[in-house]
Nucleic acid binder design. Structure first.
Lengths: 196, 196
DNA sequence: GTCTATATTGAGATAGAC
DNA sequence: GTCTATCTCAATATAGAC
């Protein structure tokens, strides 16, 4: 599964950062989890913050590329957005540790590595813009009913992003069921895609 | 404004924790912000984590008491929920630093002070339950249209909680306008309170 | 690529004078 | 209630052997 030592390190750091927070985890703890000495980590990453960047950046960029590529081939705006949001929730669940680190340690990245922060924010922004455009187009086409596409995009993204805060695999519903339900609440409910 | 030195300390710590994160801020930095020495802080708080608890607990409990007290006197469930959610957004904005710390450092509290964590989670849970009950009652009364009141409550709370992530006072809309718009998207949109 | 050894800095917290 | 002085520990990171 984990082919390279580098991947092994990123994986261990992701788990520790997600569980305890970036500053609460020392390089020694990461090294222990991998079975090497602290100093050996510096063979793979020049600093701790580069490790954080690798975690936050890799999964976010992969996610957004996937989502934006998938945006095109659908008959209606409603179906397009429902699929996008459902995939959003399931991806966020699959990479919940990475997303937890990426979201929670954003300001740490902003303070310690401003370039990386700006880059990441730009990537996120392009995704938010794509969702907003999709909503705007759906409104223009008469599929959606919404007063402010910008606000609606923010509200819906806030909604789907929050699933990881409460969802547990041990609960009564699968992540796929929750993903479908959230997509329906957003598209058919909030945006009124299905006439009532 | 800040009557006691204790309040002054809590206020300074809130700002610093919100901006830099709990572990990134030392007791010395908090003391500097107040104009005393680091050791003097221990006259008011026995440890750093007690300070965190004071920040997270005070504002959360005050908020939830306020909101639950306000729940009763309204003619319809829709109006009741619209008011609750609007107040939620404006309160969260007024106490955005405290809420940022309370939400982001939850796991720190869980690790360092499990009792405080459990207490705080129970308080939050009672609020979530109240919102869910309100939605369920509104559904039973035929005012709302929703498949799963539990999921709807989680989705709506995720939505209103996310406003602080993007809202800035320098933007084009006031917080009151955003609060009203979010309440409408939740109640009239997601829950379909207004017939379309 | 991993190790030992270490430099350097700052953390949280305490003792006890005033 | 605030101070000075200090304890103890752990942090990130580097140098250089193997």
């Amino acid at each position: 599964m984990l082919t390279s030592r580098r991947e092994e390190i990123v994986h261990a750091a992701t788990e520790l950062f997600a569980r305890q927070g970036y500053h609460a985890v020392g390089m020694r703890a990461i090294a222990d989890a991998v079975g090497i000495r602290g100093s050996s980590l510096y063979h793979y990453f020049p600093s701790k913050v580069e490790l954080l960047h690798a975690i936050a950046s890799d999964s976010t960029k992969r996610f957004i590329e996937l989502q934006l590529a998938d945006l095109r081939p659908m008959p209606t705006y409603a179906e397009r957005l429902r699929k996008l949001l459902g995939d959003h929730v399931t991806y966020f669940h699959a990479y919940r540790l990475e997303e937890a680190v990426g979201l929670r340690e954003l300001q740490e990245l902003k303070a310690s590595a401003p370039d990386y922060y700006a880059e990441l924010q730009a990537t996120r922004r392009s995704y938010q813009d794509a969702v907003e455009r999709l909503i705007r187009d759906g409104c223009a086409a008469g599929e959606f009913d919404c007063a402010d596409a910008h606000l609606a995009a923010l509200a819906i993204l806030g909604m789907v992003n929050s699933v990881n805060d409460w969802f547990r695999d041990t609960g009564r519903q699968s992540i796929e069921a929750v993903a479908a339900a959230y997509a329906a609440m957003a598209v058919d409910g909030l945006l009124g895609a299905t006439p009532r």
